[in-house]
Each structure stands twice: as structure tokens, then as C-alpha cells.
């Protein structure tokens, strides 16, 4: 299925929760959805017979200056089609539903996005830092991140 067909079908089911479909990009087309109904949308994407997206290739956190974003790259093992799904969350209250119960691989990906970007996934069973030390401060991949002077008495600059 092509991205715009998926978009039409999702639109008929979820109405205004599906925001836009971008097929102008040079390479990858994507669909932007609202974060409120994300869990239900993802559930449909996995279980509906037309979609069957059972393989979450990647989940990336993004810093889009005024917003934060999460990008889901989906793939279907049976139907061999792909989809790029995006949600935006405001920087002041970066919360979006967790899809960990739909694709179990999302567990670590979401922890990573939380660690490096500071996006909070509601409903995640164990949302703690994964790469940085547990007592690290700040979210390093944000554009406005300032590297701390020292960590446990060790200087971070050379």
C-alpha cells in the first residue's frame, strides 16, 4: 500500500487525529498524526488486515526547534510495505503514548529517546535512562544542550 492510500484509510477511521500526509519530499513520504490517539492508531496499523505492520524498524526522537518529534518507521513482513509515521509534542510538555505494548522492540528505543531527547512516553513500564549514567543531567541530543563542566569530579572538556 502506498502512503497516501494508508492516509485515506486512516483518515476515514480516525478523523481529525490524522493531520497530514506529505508525499512531496524528495525521498520518503510520511504521515503526521496527533499524539492523543497514537496508541489506537498504531494498534490498527499492526492488526488491520490491510496494514499488518508487524515490524518496527526504528523509532527516533527529533528536536525540531520549537517542538520535539517522534518518528516511527514501520515495515510489514507479510505485505512488504513501509510507512513513516510522525508525531509532534510540544517542548514544554513532551508527552506521548508509549507503543511498547504493541511492538516490544519499542521498549529500548523509547528509553533511548527519553534519555537523549527527553520525550516522556506515558504507559512505558520502565522509563529510565539507558545510555547515559542514571544520574546524568539533561538530554544531550537537544539542540540547546550545554555539556556540564564535570561529572563526578572528572572534567568533561579536554
Amino acid at each position: 500500500m502506498l502512503t497516501n492510500e494508508i492516509f485515506e484509510k486512516l483518515k476515514s477511521e480516525f478523523g481529525e487525529n490524522i493531520l497530514e500526509c506529505n508525499d512531496q519530499q524528495p525521498v520518503d513520504h510520511f504521515i503526521v498524526v496527533k499524539s492523543e490517539k497514537l496508541f489506537e492508531i498504531c494498534h490498527t496499523l499492526r492488526d488491520d488486515d490491510d496494514f499488518l505492520f508487524d515490524y518496527l524498524m526504528s523509532l527516533s526522537g527529533m528536536d525540531l526547534n520549537e517542538n520535539l518529534g517522534v518518528v516511527y518507521h514501520l515495515y510489514s513482513m507479510k505485505l512488504k510495505h513501509k510507512l513513516v509515521l510522525k508525531v509532534m509534542v510540544p517542548k514544554t510538555d513532551p508527552k506521548t503514548p508509549s507503543v511498547e505494548r504493541i511492538w516490544r522492540t519499542a521498549d529500548w528505543h523509547e528509553r533511548e529517546a527519553y534519555d537523549l531527547m527527553g520525550i516522556e512516553f506515558t504507559g512505558h513500564h520502565n522509563l529510565i535512562r539507558i545510555l547515559c549514567p542514571y544520574d546524568w543531567e539533561g538530554h544531550p541530543l537537544r539542540k540547546d544542550y550545554q555539556t556540564p563542566e564535570s561529572y563526578h569530579g572528572m572534567k568533561t572538556s579536554s
Partner: peptide
């Protein structure tokens, strides 16, 4: 490159590596 985005993946020895 022009503005845009791409998700590229290929079969690496350990599995598919994806670069967004």
C-alpha cells in the same frame, strides 16, 4: 544534499542497519 529525509537500511552481517 537537498532538504529532505531518508531512511536507508541494508543487510549488514549482524542484521539490518538503518540510518535515518
Amino acid at each position: 544534499p537537498p532538504a529532505g529525509e531518508v531512511y536507508m537500511r541494508a543487510e549488514n552481517p549482524k542484521g539490518d542497519l538503518g540510518l535515518y
